[in-house]
């Protein structure tokens, strides 16, 4: 008779959207699986599970990360931000607001990745060119918009976030 080891598990302690969590998960659990299945934060999506599509994007210690390529075990001690954590409950981040206003999405499946990558870009570059925006979101596949409205929305968000424009827009 073959002896089968029980699936190896571990407890991962990290911060998710500012809250300390301790999550029991399989050794090989992906970060996206921990976020969706255990923490029930389903704004992070699963698409290709192959690192191509970007719908599982989160931030890990500030860095935009495809959570299907990242082991939950590696998030030990990390600060994780999911799409639920980019703005206060009931409000939208400027990038989200710009995508909403500009119809920068249709089905919405790719939105988490577009939002995180736009935020990442605008933190270091408040006046990006079209080319810089397209490069910044190149890890996110959108099959609805053709990207043009996303690019326009990120331009709009850059204006909202630009400190020199802030008094005019808020």
């Amino acid at each position: 008779m073959t002896h089968v080891d029980p699936a190896p598990h571990r407890t991962v302690s990290c911060t998710v959207n500012g809250k300390d969590v301790q999550v029991r998960c399989r050794d090989g659990a992906l970060l996206v699986e921990m976020i969706r299945d255990t923490l029930d934060l389903t704004g992070t999506h699963i698409g290709c599970l192959n690192g191509d599509c970007g719908v599982c994007t989160v931030r890990v210690d500030g860095q935009v990360t495809k959570s299907c390529l990242y082991l939950a075990a590696r998030a030990e001690g990390a600060e994780v931000t999911t799409i639920e954590g980019v703005a206060e409950e009931g409000t939208l981040h400027e990038v989200q607001q710009a995508l909403w206003n500009g119809e920068g999405f249709q089905c919405g499946f790719c939105v988490p990745g577009q939002v995180f990558c736009a935020m990442d870009l605008l933190e270091s570059n408040t006046t990006p060119s079209d080319g810089q925006i397209r490069h910044a979101i190149s890890g996110n596949l959108c099959r609805c918009t053709g990207y043009q409205k996303i690019v326009e929305a990120i331009h709009d968000a850059s204006t909202r976030l630009d400190p020199t424009e802030k008094t005019a827009t808020h």
Partner: peptide, 10 residues
């Protein structure tokens, strides 16, 4: 490198 900022970060 192809794959976006997320891939290049890892």
């Amino acid at each position: 490198i192809t794959g976006g900022a997320q891939l290049r970060n890892q």
